[in-house]
């Protein structure tokens, strides 16, 4: 009987973990990251996930001619630095934050609308620890009227 309850408690915790993580991620994106977009207005889209060091993610989005954009990559404090690149559809690199001291934001505009790829990677800890660090990573877009 006692064992059944122990298993139940463990399974409950495991089952609830993803939604708790997502809720924390939303709260983090809303409270910490969104303010960094100012004076740009957050477009409202929510792109966030729990990532572990060494993991990478990609986002595909069309950006429109005439608009002013800010990309802001926001990782929780627990995580190492986040590398991010902006690529065109042929995967030519248009921006690489490693050349700019791991800057978390990039402001840009376009002469012609383009589909771009935002590619990011949570750096691994130097020395390669057995214990992997995880945390919320959000990709936010700010837009601004001319």
């Amino acid at each position: 009987m006692k064992k059944i309850f122990q298993v139940l408690i463990i399974l409950t915790i495991i089952a609830l973990m993803p939604s708790v993580g997502n809720a924390q991620c939303k709260s983090f994106a809303k409270k910490v990251c969104k303010a960094e977009l100012t004076p740009y207005i957050h477009d409202g889209n929510f792109n966030a996930a729990i990532l572990t060091e060494g993991e990478d993610a990609e986002l595909y989005k069309t950006f429109y001619a005439g608009q002013n954009y800010r990309i802001y990559i926001c990782g929780s404090d627990a995580l190492p630095e986040i590398e991010f690149q902006v690529l065109d559809v042929n995967r030519n690199v248009l921006y690489d934050n490693r050349k700019f001291n791991y800057s978390k934001m990039w402001d840009f505009k376009l002469e012609a609308s383009q589909q771009l790829i935002i590619s990011l990677r949570v750096k691994g800890t130097e020395g390669g620890s057995e214990e992997l660090l995880s945390g919320c990573v959000a990709i936010l877009f700010g837009i601004k009227e001319n």
Partner: peptide
């Protein structure tokens, strides 16, 4: 992780 992002109503 792969995200696909459409223009939001605001954009």
């Amino acid at each position: 992780e792969i995200f696909y992002s459409l223009p939001s109503p605001l954009e």
